[in-house]
Structures are given as structure tokens and as C-alpha cells.
Design a protein around this nucleic acid. Structure first.
Length: 567
RNA sequence: GCGGCUGUAGUCUAGCGGUUAGGACUGGAGCUUCCCAAGCUUCAAACCCGGGUUCAAAUCCCGGCAGCCGCACCA
């Protein structure tokens, strides 16, 4: 069923899930407030994710600042790749991507700066494609929010466009915390910021968004995953970038190289499971592989989990093999040793020929430069030096001829106990707001104008409604007692004694509360209450003291009918 | 960012130059032994913002903001 997004958003606004932000000041595009129910729904989704990643897979949760200094994004590539250059027609106002207009005029227009690109367009007399008008010089538009840190001119900083960089720059800390073993994973949940040109479609394109990201650091040559065997028979809907969509087992997908490796496949499985757990309809989920041209500047392979909602097929999660791109980039830019150490099973005796300087002759001959010459000699290929009368080395730009009396080729024995590796990264990156919207979209149901949110009890903000049939004769006190016992068990319940009982059920159905407990006159005599199922409107009688246990069971996934067997 | 359409209580909407701005739903207070949005009484609640035209603007015009649709963008 295709849900009209306007209808879903209207319910969200009406019932306290979502509000357009800063509404009394006219609002601001791309920003939303989570109301009381939305905030709880969101944190329920986040907590389930934590359960899978932190408790289930042993990832380490960290929290990094939202503001980062410029070099971080210089290294990550966001400063360059994340900004586009635009030109505008001075007569009709049409805008163009400058690098697109320059395609064909240059091998790699994306690599040019504003000036070079402007010159290229001018020299080739590129004009507006619509009206042949003159174009403005290229202007840069960066999708990151820039800010200034500190007094005066300050230091350039940016609001992070993803939480990932905080984990990459902390690789060494995480690696050490995980006691220096690969694979090791970090996760982070938090806000990220993207200065979208035209935010639209409610929660789908926000300027401030919540992400849940996991970075799994793995051995570059070993992307197997022990738990893969437990899930390999599961079928996923795949849309590969070559060939038609297929439903395929993970085992076949990896064997046929549709999915690059076991680890990537396993986390696709985990992603699918998470989405289903929080109530997204598995029949409306698929994984679409990025086109080669669409792949981000860092990704080696990437699959998006897409859900079909009122807006069409929408990306919810990206599961990417980022290769060593990020860690290598930070290693290069910062100079920090962001490597893992792989210890060999046995330390290896490595015999190696090296060119060794003979300082007895070298020193007197080259005096002050002798040390530099020796270093240059050590860098030479021993095989090419052997047997020659002299070699030429370059020292601070100067070519020096070194006679063979100044060096020997010797066999050097070294004990090597391992090697340094730049880890590869498997990254599942989840857009919380989009997932939450998809949950609402798939839960929304309407029959004869009766709206019900069929939220999975696991994520439903309110777990139970509690009503006295009549707000008197002590029924209200009993109901308040049940409400209290649910709260003490850590479950949000909602006490309501106003209006007819049907109206109260309807109120709870509309916000997705999975069950309602009603205290009636029989409760006073036999100590039982009715519990009603949201989706079937079935009722069971239950001993009052079993209510928290029953609701807990529903949240844990029990079928409603099974509640009658509770003891 | 460009072009088109739109903006009335919490929601859906009537009004198309002069209205105490109407209704429905929701919400609050109350009545009703009340198990699926029943009924009754009662209360609260709106013309997106700023300019202009006019004796008079929710209504016409301009600008802004916001939303929707298309283009572009979405690392």
C-alpha cells in the first residue's frame, strides 16, 4: 500500500511525533523537532541498534565532537569532493555544474580549481545551453557547514557531515582498547550536518540528521567473517550494478562475487535483520549496489538498503567497503602511525643484502656530507650496486660519485616478528531519521478512516494504555496502580480515563500502542483485567499482577495469543 | 539554486474586496455502569510574515518564509 506522505506527516504532527522546527518564526527548511513520541520512538530504534552492534557484535561505542578542524576534512576528501562548482547564466539565471560544462574540454575537470575552470570555460567560449547568455565565473558551494573556532579570526572548523571521521582518526585508540586485534569495530550515534541545497520530502533530506555508523577495521587480506556461516543461507533481494535484480542466498552472492566478501555480506544481513526487527516490511526492502560512477570518492563497493515508502524506493542504509581509503588518508595527512601490527606465527629471520657504508674511507672523502651519503647508499638496490666500481648518489640535489672503496654489499640478518598493516574498513552507515520515517510509513494503516499505527512493540513509544472502564468506584485507583507497576518495570504506559472506552482505544491505536489494559467491575471481584491487542482487537483476561510480564513478553516478540498461557 | 503550484485553529477545510471568518474532526471541563472514535452540555482554538493598492484586504499586487511538484543536487 502506498502511503501519502502528507497523511503520515499530518499524523506525526498531530500526535507529537514530529514538528517542523522553529515554526513560530516561520520555520527553517530541512530541520525537524522530534516531539515526545518521536523522541522515544527514535531512542527505541537507536537502542535496538546498540543491542545488535555493541552487545551482539562487540563493537565499541564512542562519541566524538561534532566540530572538527579543517585538516580532518582535507584528509578525508570532503573539502574537495564534497563541494561542487556552479556557474550561473547572467541573462536567464539557469545554473550549471561547472565541471559538467567542461566535460570534453579537459580530461578531469573535477580536479581544477575555480580559476582554472573559469579560464577553461572562457577560453572555449562556453555559454548558457538554454539562451546562449554569458556565464558567471565558477562559484564553490560546499555542502558542509563552516564555522570559526576561537576568538578573532579563529581557526576554520566544520560541522561533521558524517560521524565516521571521528572513528577513523581514533583508530589507534580503538585498536589498543580492543587489545590490538583485528577485526575491531567502533560505532557512533549522533548528529551530522549537510547544507542541502533544497531540503524536501520531510525527514528524507535534512540539514541536521542523526546517523548510526559502524566502522569495522579488518585485515586487508582477510575479509572472512566467522558468523557468516550462520546466516549464509539467508536470501536477500539484490539489485547488482551489473545484471538484473535477484533474490539470492548470501552464500551464492559471495561465491559468485556479486557481493565482494563475507564481512560485507554479513553486515548486509545484519542490516536487513535490524530493519525487519524495527518493523520495516521485508517485502519492501532491497539492496541496491552503487553504480561504479555513483560510488563515493572513498568506496570500493557499496550496497544501499532501500525501502519502498510513499516517496518511492529510498536509501536507508549504506553498507560500504571503504578499503583503506580513510585510514590511509589520515595516516598520510597527520603523519600518525595508524596501522595494525600483524605478528607472524614465528618470528622470521630475514636475510637481506644491504649496501653498507665503509666510514673509514667515506668519512675523509665526504666529510660533513658523509652521513647523508651513507643514508643514500643504504637506499640503493644492492643488486644493481654489486660489482660496480662506483655509484652515483644524489645528496641535497647534488650528484656525487662514490667509489666502491666507500661501501660494501653485505648480508644482513634481521629478526622480523610481524608487519604493519593499514586496516580496511567495512562501514554500515544508517540514517536514523529515514529509518524512523520508513517505520512510520510501513506501520501506517487506515481502514474506513480508522487510523492505526501497527508499530512493532519493540519500538512502540507507549507499550500499553491503561484504562478504568469508569473513572470511579475504585476502578481508577486499580488502573493507576497498574500504570505505576508498568512504569516501575521500565515500560512507558499511558493512563486515560476520559471519554468512551472506544475513543481511548482509538487514541492508543493511532500512536501505535500495542496493547491496552482495561479495569472493569469484575476486576474488583476476581482480580483480572482485560488486555486488548491493537491489531486484532482481540481481548484476553489476565490476572492483574501478570500485566507487566505480559507487556514485557509482547515487547520481546511474543504473540498476543500466547499471553493466555502466562503464569 | 531555477521554474510551476500552494499557505485559514492541532488536523481537514468553507469563504474569492465589506462576514461577529463558517463547519467537521481533534482537544479541555462535565453528564451518561461506557469494551471499540456513541450521545448530550459547555469551553478553547486560525486568515504564514512584511510592504503596497483601496474608504475597506483572508480575498488583489510585490517581496520574504515555508510546503508540494518538476529540473539540478543528494559525497
Amino acid at each position: 500500500m502506498q502511503m501519502d506522505p502528507q497523511e503520515v506527516l499530518s499524523l506525526c504532527k498531530r500526535r507529537g511525533f514530529l514538528w517542523p522546527a522553529y515554526d513560530i518564526y516561520g520555520g527553517m527548511g530541512g530541520l525537524y523537532d522530534y516531539g515526545p513520541l518521536g523522541a522515544v520512538l527514535k531512542s527505541n530504534i537507536e537502542n535496538h541498534w546498540r543491542r545488535l552492534y555493541v552487545l551482539g557484535e562487540g563493537f565499541h561505542e564512542i562519541q566524538c565532537p561534532i566540530i572538527a578542524p579543517e585538516p580532518v576534512f582535507k584528509a578525508s576528501g570532503h573539502l574537495d569532493a564534497f563541494s561542487d562548482m556552479y556557474v550561473e547564466c547572467t541573462s536567464c539565471g539557469e545554473t550549471y555544474r561547472a565541471d559538467h560544462l567542461a566535460a570534453g574540454l579537459h580530461d578531469n575537470p573535477a580536479a581544477l580549481n575555480e580559476e582554472q575552470l573559469g579560464k577553461l570555460l572562457r577560453d572555449n567560449n562556453v555559454r548558457c545551453e538554454a539562451c546562449k547568455g554569458e556565464l558567471t565565473p565558477p562559484r564553490r558551494f560546499n555542502l558542509m557547514f563552516k564555522t570559526s573556532v576561537g576568538a578573532g579570526k579563529g581557526k576554520a572548523g566544520y560541522l561533521r557531515p558524517e560521524t565516521a571521521q571521528g572513528m577513523f582518526v581514533n583508530f589507534s585508540q580503538v585498536y589498543r582498547y580492543g587489545r590490538e586485534k583485528l577485526p575491531v569495530g567502533a560505532v557512533q550515534l549522533g548528529r551530522s550536518f549537510r547544507n542541502e541545497i533544497s531540503p524536501r520530502q520531510g525527514l528524507l533530506r535534512l540539514r541536521e540528521l542523526s546517523m548510526m555508523e559502524a566502522e569495522l577495521f579488518v585485515h586487508p587480506e582477510d575479509k572472512s567473517w566467522p558468523k557468516f556461516k550462520d546466516v549464509k543461507a539467508t536470501k536477500l533481494s539484490l539489485v547488482p550494478n551489473s545484471g538484473p535484480p535477484v533474490d539470492m542466498t548470501l552464500q551464492d552472492a559471495v561465491a559468485q562475487h556479486v557481493i565482494a566478501n563475507e564481512t560485507l555480506a554479513y553486515f548486509m544481513w545484519l542490516t536487513q535483520r535490524f530493519a525487519v526487527d524495527i518493523g520495516i516490511d521485508p517485502k519492501r526492502l532491497r539492496f541496491r549496489q552503487h553504480e561504479k560512477t555513483e560510488m563515493a570518492h572513498y568506496a570500493a563497493d557499496c550496497w544501499d538498503l532501500e525501502a519502498e515508502i510513499g516517496y518511492g524506493w529510498i536509501e536507508m542504509v549504506g553498507v560500504a567497503d571503504r578499503g583503506c581509503y580513510d585510514v590511509q588518508a589520515h595516516l598520510t595527512h597527520s603523519g600518525a602511525d595508524l596501522t595494525a601490527f600483524e605478528k607472524f606465527d614465528e618470528p622470521r629471520e630475514v636475510e637481506q643484502e644491504v649496501v653498507r657504508a665503509s666510514f673509514g674511507n667515506l668519512g675523509p672523502l665526504f666529510k660533513g656530507k658523509a652521513k647523508q651519503v651513507a643514508e643514500a647508499l643504504a637506499g640503493l638496490n644492492p643488486a644493481s650496486v654489486k660489482g660496480s666500481d662506483s655509484v652515483t648518489v644524489e645528496v641535497s640535489g647534488e650528484k656525487l660519485v662514490v667509489p666502491s672503496s666507500c661501501y660494501d654489499v653485505v648480508l644482513k640478518k634481521e629478526k622480523v616478528s610481524g608487519r604493519k598493516l593499514v586496516p580496511h574498513v567495512i562501514e554500515p552507515s544508517y540514517g536514523v531519521d529515514r529509518l524512523l520515517y520508513a517505520v512510520l510509513d510501513h506501520a501506517y494503516s487506515k481502514k474506513d478512516d480508522y487510523i492505526s499505527l501497527r508499530l512493532n512493540p519493540l519500538v512502540a513509544p507507549i507499550k500499553a494504555g491503561v484504562f478504568p472502564l469508569m473513572p470511579r468506584d475504585g476502578l481508577d485507583d486499580i488502573a493507576l496502580g497498574i500504570h505505576d507497576s508498568l512504569s516501575r518495570s521500565g515500560m512507558m504506559s499511558y493512563y486515560d480515563d476520559s471519554g468512551s472506552i472506544g475513543r481511548r482505544y482509538a487514541r492508543m491505536d493511532e500512536v501505535g500502542t500495542p496493547c491496552c489494559v482495561t479495569v472493569d467491575y469484575d476486576t474488583k471481584t476476581d482480580g483480572t483485567v482485560t488486555i486488548r491487542d491493537r491489531d486484532s482487537a482481540q481481548q484476553l483476561r489476565l490476572r492483574t499482577e501478570l500485566v507487566p510480564k505480559a507487556v514485557q513478553a509482547l515487547v520481546a516478540g511474543a504473540k498476543f495469543e500466547s499471553l493466555s498461557k502466562l503464569e
